[in-house]
């Protein structure tokens, strides 16, 4: 019983992190039809930001790091994605792929190929025991961060004019512009949100992995892609459901697989996703919206 609960707690922690990764990707796709490959590099930039600001106090370092990532997200949109805005989703996707590769190699040039280790407060990696269940600090952090962001986003989308404009733009971008919503403002705003979420995810990943390296954005972005794809591209709740299933599936495979196969855990998880897609090619919550 305790063992099962332990797995449930682990799965919730992982699913929360995955939701933080998938939500911004789904958000940007919903607004402008871009599946952003370079979201992973925003996370990478955040991790290097923590490395650079390591001498400062942690809250200040995190604050500055998130600010840097938001600026990076805005610059990315302005320089690379705005010129190709309105292209087919395939063109947008391949553009973000080029941006991703460019940033990885810039990071390699600047920081070298060896990971930069980053100290984070020890309590985050320590586990507290609650009735025999071990809960790590970083698990709690993931859950809190995901809850705050998802809850905050829901309130923001429901209660503010900007959130309303985002919802309208996600449904019919041209019509939104026809009622006077500024395309650039909505898209920049969405990128800023995605940057903030990438910054938070970067901190969690640095706590878990202890270092920053040029290709560290890859694994998170694949998770984000698979989660949004499972959910049915363009559906926010689908992306969250995808993240939850992916988190649960990863923990499940970790438990079930024999030791020597555990290092191929992701292969099994993604294999499982492909089997799932065999049954539901349109995703779990298909979005009926046609993008222009």
């Amino acid at each position: 019983m305790t063992a099962l609960l332990q797995h449930v707690v682990d799965a919730i922690g992982l699913a929360s992190l995955y939701a933080l990764l998938a939500l911004p990707v789904a958000l940007i796709y919903g607004i402008m039809g871009l599946v952003n490959f370079a979201h992973g590099e925003l996370i990478m930039i955040g991790a290097y930001g923590l490395f650079i600001f390591a001498a400062l106090s942690l809250p200040l370092a995190i604050f500055l790091m998130i600010a840097v990532v938001i600026v990076a997200a805005l610059l990315m949109e302005r320089s690379a994605f705005r010129p190709v805005r309105g292209s087919t989703p395939e063109t947008l996707l391949v553009t973000s792929f080029a941006v991703s590769f460019l940033l990885q190699n810039l990071a390699l040039m600047v920081f070298g190929s060896r990971p930069k280790s980053i100290e984070t407060p020890g309590f985050l990696n320590k586990a507290v025991s609650v009735g025999g269940i071990q809960i790590e600090g970083v698990t709690i952090l993931s859950v809190v961060a995901a809850t705050v962001f998802i809850g905050g986003l829901v309130i923001f989308m429901r209660r503010t004019n900007f959130g309303m404009a985002m919802r309208a733009a996600a449904e019919d971008f041209t019509m939104a512009r026809l009622v006077g919503i500024r395309a650039n403002a909505v898209i920049s705003g969405t990128f800023a949100i995605s940057g903030a979420m990438a910054g938070v995810a970067a901190f969690i990943l640095v706590v878990q992995g202890g270092s920053a390296f040029a290709t560290m954005g890859l694994a998170p972005v694949i998770i984000a892609f698979v989660a949004t794809m499972m959910g049915g591209l363009g559906s926010f709740s689908g992306a969250l459901l995808g993240a939850a299933l992916l988190g649960a599936g990863t923990v499940a495979f970790e438990v079930v697989l024999p030791t020597q196969l555990r290092s191929s855990r992701e292969a099994f998880v993604y294999g499982g996703v492909l089997v799932l897609l065999l049954i539901r090619p349109q995703g779990l919550i298909p979005s009926r919206k046609e993008r222009v």
């Binding site: 290092s263 897609l277 090619p281």
Partner: peptide, 23 residues
């Protein structure tokens, strides 16, 4: 599974295939 996916999802699913093969 992959050929039945909508175009964009197919692109992304192939990325998952790359990761599977690599692992």
């Amino acid at each position: 599974p992959v050929a039945r996916l909508p175009a964009l999802a197919l692109s992304l699913a192939m990325f998952a295939v790359l990761v599977i093969a690599y692992q």
